[in-house]
């Protein structure tokens, strides 16, 4: 077999069985979300009152909810919303966070101001800041993405700034500067490439946090509208039936745990591989 860097990369990454397992789980969930219309046994929104709150069985593998909707189908469709929101949060917070992190790390004059703002935002618990922002912006999927992106951007700024502070002192940056390479190019090519790996690791973690936070917001009624099936809204609307029909709450929660956990494990695996120094400690 040809040993391309990509193959070597995955070989090393999956040396730990757990990371491989997590990656497979994640891939299955993502595929589920992408192929939802083809693989889900029922329409997620088709109501069948006579079959309401049926326990897991042959017709509905994971049971039905209070409107007789198939829970498995809703979990499959819920993956679309939950992962979609999580992924959008990752994209936005990575982009904005990387930009500000680079600027703060590279230009001393901006550092103080940016980092004080980061400190201020981190003085508020994630969920509190998120619910405040949603309250201000209005509850919609778009605003949930916006709010969670604002909540997680400071983490990215911290990571990128820390790496930038290190990288900017490296000889090749000095050399580029001496050769007259423009600051913009130094930042966008030389430094960005070198801070990419911690950012990538952070991205998987934020993905996991965002999936958890979205569920929390939906549960509080301050997230996406309750009629959109996400894992969070499923638990929220099902909780009053939990006494008699545990499955309405149990399975969507398991989906959240599985998705968040496998993201974390994959992120951990990435970090171990990209930064061998950290392996021994964290």
């Amino acid at each position: 077999m040809v040993q391309t860097p990509a193959i070597l990369f995955f070989r090393r990454m999956f040396r730990r069985k757990l990371v491989l397992a997590a990656f497979i789980v994640l891939a299955v969930i993502v595929l589920m979300a992408l192929l939802a219309p083809w693989i889900s046994p029922y329409e997620p929104t088709s109501i069948k009152i006579i079959r309401r709150l049926k326990p897991p069985g042959e017709l509905n593998w994971l049971g039905t909810d209070e409107f007789g909707r198939d829970i498995l189908s809703r979990i499959i469709y819920g993956a679309r919303a939950s992962l979609g929101i999580g992924f959008a949060v990752v994209l936005v917070s990575m982009t904005v966070g990387t930009l500000f992190g680079l600027l703060a790390g590279y230009f001393r004059s901006l550092d103080g101001l940016v980092m004080r703002f980061v400190d201020a935002m981190m003085a508020l618990p994630d969920i509190l800041l998120a619910i405040f922002l949603v309250a201000v912006l209005g509850a919609s999927a778009f605003n949930v993405v916006l709010a969670l992106s604002i909540v997680y951007t400071p983490r990215v700024i911290r990571v990128v700034r820390a790496s930038t502070l290190v990288v900017r002192e490296l000889p090749f940056v000095e050399a580029a500067r001496a050769l007259g390479v423009s600051t913009r190019r130094i930042l966008s090519v030389h430094i960005l490439l070198n801070v990419a790996s911690p950012v990538l690791v952070q991205a998987t973690f934020i993905f996991a946090y965002a999936v958890l936070a979205e569920a929390g917001l939906s549960f509080l009624g301050a997230g996406v509208p309750p009629e959109v099936p996400t894992w969070g809204t499923m638990i929220a609307s099902g909780q009053q039936y939990a006494d008699s029909s545990f499955w309405v709450v149990l399975f969507p929660g398991l989906a959240i745990v599985l998705a968040a956990l496998s993201l974390q494990v994959v992120g951990d695996g990435l970090r171990d591989m990209l930064d061998p120094k950290l392996r021994k400690t964290l």
């Binding site: 996991a208 958890l212 549960f219 969070g232 638990i235 709450v249 929660g253 745990v257 968040a260 956990l261």
Partner: peptide, 11 residues
């Protein structure tokens, strides 16, 4: 770290 607290609470 990856269990939603409200879900664990319900359980």
């Amino acid at each position: 770290a990856n269990i939603p607290s409200f879900w664990l609470g319900l359980i």
